[in-house]
Simulated assay, not measured.
Amino acid sequence: MYSYKYPRPALTTDGIVLKKESKQLLLIQRGIEPYKGKWALPGGFMEMDELLVDACKRELMEETGLEVLELTQFTAADKVDRDPRGRTISILFYGYVAEDAVVKGGDDAAKAEWFPIDDLPELAFDHADLIARFKREILSL
């Protein structure tokens, strides 16, 4: 294993997935701590041998059963205290799916559900801020 002089943050990806017509947003209910029981964007830690976009696709499949073929990189979330487990940077991607897309919670997600983007439950981490930014910058809402 490598030894480094400087500490390294963990790297995650999060997916903002919408039904294009109805603007329903995909969220998962966390099945584990931190924020167990709270809603969040689907996502998780990147593996050492995968690209960021592939990590996001894998996490979407594991947590929701949804295969999203096309994702676009949106932003990096690097707020210092955004994750109580330690210094974590997340790369966010977004994509659209058909109105009839069906999801089911899996892996560390207790549930997966669609919510109107303007009527979301309380969210874990900094996800409310990130979704608000996405609405302003990408959806022009």
Results as ranks from 00 to 15, higher is better:
F74E: 05
D126K: 06
S22I: 05
I131S: 07
E113H: 07
V97I: 10
L66N: 07
Q73W: 02
P42A: 08
A128D: 11
W39F: 11
L130P: 08
D108F: 15
T13R: 08
L52C: 10
L51A: 13
L139V: 09
I131Y: 00
K79V: 09
M61V: 12
P7H: 09
F134K: 05
V102L: 14
H127N: 15
P116G: 09
L25M: 00
K36E: 12
K57A: 06
V80N: 04
V97A: 14
S140D: 12
S22K: 06
E63D: 12
L92W: 10
S140Y: 03
D107Q: 10
D14F: 03
Y2L: 15
A112M: 14
D14H: 04
Y94M: 12
A10R: 08
K57P: 15
A128Q: 12
S22A: 11
K104E: 12
I91F: 01
R30P: 02
K79P: 00
R136I: 02
G95S: 10
A40N: 07
R85D: 00
I138W: 03
I28M: 00
S22C: 10
E67W: 02
V68I: 11
R87P: 05
G31P: 07
D119E: 11
S22Q: 03
I28K: 08
A55P: 12
G31M: 09
L25W: 00
T64D: 06
M48Y: 13
G15L: 10
E137I: 06
P84A: 03
K38Q: 07
A128C: 07
S3I: 03
G65C: 13
K20L: 01
T12W: 15
E99T: 06
D83A: 09
R30A: 00
D54S: 14
A40I: 01
K20Y: 09
F115K: 08
G95C: 13
G105P: 14
E122A: 07
Y6A: 14
A101V: 11
L51Q: 15
K111H: 11
G37M: 01
E21G: 09
L141W: 14
R8Y: 02
E113L: 15
L71G: 01
I28R: 02
L69M: 09
E67Q: 01
E47R: 13
C56F: 13
Y4R: 11
V97F: 13
R82K: 11
A132H: 05
P34D: 01
D81E: 14
P121W: 00
I32P: 11
T88G: 01
Y96F: 15
L18N: 03
L120Q: 11
V102F: 08
Y94F: 15
K19L: 12
G43V: 04
E122I: 03
P9M: 00
K104T: 15
A132S: 08
D100T: 05
L27Y: 03
V97Y: 03
G43T: 02
L51Y: 11
A55W: 10
P9G: 01
G105H: 13
D81C: 14
A76E: 15
K36P: 00
D126F: 14
R133W: 08
G15Q: 06
T88W: 06
I89Y: 05
E99L: 11
P34H: 04
G43I: 04
D107Y: 15
G86Q: 00
M48K: 13
